[in-house]
Computed example of a mutant assay.
Amino acid sequence: MDFINKKRMPVESKYHIFDEVTYKGEDLHVRGLLMTPRENVRRIVIYLRGGKGQVGKVRTSRLMQFADKHTLVFGPYYRGNNGSEGKDEFYGSDLNDVTEAIRILHQIYPDIAIHMIGFSRGGLQGLLTFQNLPVSSYIIWGGVSDINLMYEERIDLRGMLKRMVGHPKKDAEAYQQRNAISQITETSPPILIVHGGKDKQVGIHNAYYLAEQLDKIGATYRTYYQMSEGHVPKPFALKDTLEAIKQWMKDVEQDTLKEQYNNNK
């Protein structure tokens, strides 16, 4: 199991090599952007993009936010986007484009910690996949935690949701298949919830709802709220957010998270 093809990207970087890679997602050829350290890989970050089509697409600058010189970062485009075959199903078969990429990277780097980061639309993309993968943790950042909440708050997206998923009442089964909370257990990998209090694209009630459900389940999680920030934090706040995410990954890797969690209960 490996990537089928690698195309070197014209990105100048002292510590990383950028490739657009192609791999199999079921019977389709799908693509993603791979940022590989020139030195030894000590951490892997999977960035799950938000948006659809060209809105929120994977960019080199976004991947570079999560890296140091020993961190590999990969961002799947999802099927139907940026040269990938197939059709984006919005939390349907496109979930396989996440799981297959992680399985490939885990086989190449079997002893390296893998952290998933789901931003905006990618939040639910990750929640629906992280439990059954060889990952150390999941970070949901400004992320959708429930597709029904998305339908309720984003009136401007209802037409798209009706086309791609259906109506919540008429197509209840399709919405239930996208219910991530029901799949999370007490033993699921730990979750960091990051959200801005003034987020208008994905309201902070998505974060509150997720935290409430994780409490009921007994899952391990931590929250990082910036109440004065929107969907994307302002530069000074963004620096704090990235530091919090990297500290979280370090705590998970050093196995101090559960001790901190139990002390704070």
Rank of each mutant, 00 (worst) to 15 (best):
D94C: 01
M64R: 02
Y109G: 08
H70Q: 11
P76K: 04
R103N: 14
A113Y: 15
R43L: 05
A67K: 02
A113W: 14
H106T: 02
D68K: 04
R38A: 04
N40P: 12
R59P: 04
D111T: 13
T36N: 07
F74T: 11
L72M: 12
I108Y: 14
D88P: 11
N96I: 15
V98M: 06
G86A: 07
Y78V: 07
Y78D: 01
A101R: 08
G51Q: 05
E85R: 06
I112D: 10
R79W: 06
Y91K: 09
D97K: 04
K52Q: 11
V98Q: 12
V55W: 15
M116R: 08
G118W: 12
G80N: 02
I104E: 01
K87Y: 12
A113P: 15
T36F: 04
H106K: 12
A113F: 13
K52F: 07
S61Q: 09
I104W: 15
D111E: 15
R62F: 09
I44M: 04
I102Y: 04
F66R: 02
P76S: 05
L72Q: 06
H106E: 07
R42N: 12
G118C: 14
G50S: 00
E85M: 07
L48E: 01
D68A: 06
F90G: 05
R103H: 13
T99K: 07
R62K: 09
L105S: 08
V55R: 10
R59T: 11
G50I: 00
R59H: 10
V55M: 13
T99P: 13
G53N: 05
G75K: 00
L72H: 03
T36C: 01
N81T: 01
D94R: 02
V73P: 14
N82L: 13
D88M: 11
T71Y: 05
